[in-house]
Design a protein around this nucleic acid. Structure first.
Lengths: 199, 199
DNA sequence: CTCTCATTTGGTAGTCACTATCAATTGGGG
DNA sequence: CCCCAATTGATAGTGACTACCAAATGAGAG
């Protein structure tokens, strides 16, 4: 993985990337050690050896250091890339499988840490919940495309809401249990939804 | 310390209730007139003729002035009060009907205003999304009670997630459309979910 | 009716996230 | 080697929110 858009690759860019990574690393470490709200931006900046001003040039908010999800764009791209003949739910399931294959154990361990932090800290949780709301739009678009309906269609949006809700419950549940495997929980959740949510 | 709950008593309590209502009223008015983030707590306090210190004695945060939902406890109580033989979804539908009957047109108009504000303002939206997450627990409890399962049961929680997701989508959709009737949208959403979310 | 006491209030000072701005530094191309 | 543009740090604010203290006030006791 080099660079996504044009061809930047100067020494300058590499330094920026390193600074960004350092900020994020120290932020996560401090959050883990002292808790999220007990950690100030100044502390993070000091640990990363930059000025507080510079911190805000790399991240718009303190939240953003934890909230940025590297897998999110990957996940979205993978979902849209699934063969058109798959049903929306089948496309989703295929996406979960892709993540399982492509993400290394090490990466996933870090991601789990991040998830537990985000879903437990109230301040962070409300922020991530908002992203779930955005997820409804995304899923509605995907389902609309796959079924030939409009993205504004009530049933499409309602379906997307249900899927997001089920995913939310899965993440919330997985975050509460340190032993849980998010992907397995996600699989069960989709399967149960597909079966019509029998109780 | 004689009695804490349900004290209808003195002039002191009435004044407090009036102050609280005044803060909320002026806050909502200012938010509507100038926007949420452009309104400062000091402005609200000035409008309500109290000091900023006093503002925070009545509301823990600026958000709280809009976020408190008077119908929420009513709704919860009504749901749990439904006959035990109703299925969880039937109990939910019955609850929506109760709201429709019990809430006056005037109250509902105010509530609609509040909903549109909360679901459109990003800062407020993330806060309300968090309450939806809490809603999962609530619904899981309700469904667990009604089906004789445990509240921690995976399928119960997954079902609750789907319901909350569908309600989220309904509110989000209704907030985006000034003409929409939230309760009607809610009815359609539950019906569609009950039908197994066909696309 | 008045005295006392607990509650309520306003004011002051401080912390922290975040914004705006400006001067100094630094990397890179010519 | 030098100049330009990007990057940085420092300074000064704003606004939400907390901690604290001292003045005002309602309510019950005498």
């Amino acid at each position: 993985m080099t660079s996504s858009p044009s061809e930047p690759s100067g020494l300058r860019e590499r330094k920026k990337a390193r600074t960004r990574a350092a900020i994020q690393r120290h932020a996560l470490r401090l959050f883990r050690e002292q808790g999220y709200s007990a950690t100030t931006v100044d502390q993070i900046a000091a640990a990363a050896e930059i000025s507080p001003s510079t911190f805000f040039r790399y991240f718009p908010t303190k939240e953003a250091t934890v909230l940025y999800d590297a897998f999110d764009p990957l996940l979205i791209a993978a979902t849209f890339a699934q063969p058109a003949e798959l049903s929306p739910l089948a496309a989703l399931r295929a996406t979960v499988d892709i993540i399982r294959e492509q993400v290394s154990g090490e990466e996933w361990k870090d991601e789990r840490q991040r998830q537990m932090l985000v879903f437990r800290e109230p301040e962070l949780r409300s922020a991530i919940m908002d992203r779930f709301a955005e997820g409804i739009e995304l899923l509605a678009d995907m389902a609309a495309q796959r079924t030939g309906r409009s993205a504004g269609d009530f049933e499409v949006r309602n379906w997307a809401g249900a899927v997001v809700g089920v995913v939310m419950a899965a993440f919330l549940g997985a975050a509460a249990d340190p032993e849980a495997d998010t992907l397995v929980v996600l699989d069960r959740a989709v399967a149960h939804l597909e079966a019509g949510l029998p109780l």
